[in-house]
Amino acid sequence: MTIFDHSPRARWLLTLSAFGVACGQPTPPSEDAAASSDATTDRVVMSDASAQPDAAAMDVAALPDSAPDATSVPDATSVPDATSVPDAAQDASVGAYPAGPYGSNEGQTLEDLQIEGYLNASGAALSTRSPFGPVSMQSLRQTGRRFALVHTSATY
């Protein structure tokens, strides 16, 4: 068979090759690529002005198309809060917060308290120089540290 062969099979192969060249890849898209394409479609839908936007969607919509990972691109419009760890990379691999039941005695699981203050994991500077904002127990997990000593105090 040559490329000048006009059989139906040859025409189909030529069409397929042309499609591959146009897409920048020699083979048809794999299932993973198809999934990625679906995700792109989802982002487009989420950024639709007629849709109900949420903060996450707005962040994604603000990213350039070439950004490979939404979490790696700072959002210039966001206000930094204490949940960001400026001096240590946040560890996204910690996963979801452990499920209950919760308690406050030895052997029990501490609940995901939502409080506020200064998350200062590095200890490089006075805490009031860190951003003030909401901090959760999940935020502590995301510092990547193994153990925390949580100490209660009072200002009388």
Partner: peptide, 21 residues
């Protein structure tokens, strides 16, 4: 949850289990 001063909790951040109170 944590109580009034002064209580210290050592927490395993992987499991959030309280290992010392």
């Amino acid at each position: 949850v944590l109580g009034r001063r002064e209580i210290s909790y050592v927490v395993d951040l992987r499991t959030m289990r309280i290992v010392r109170k």
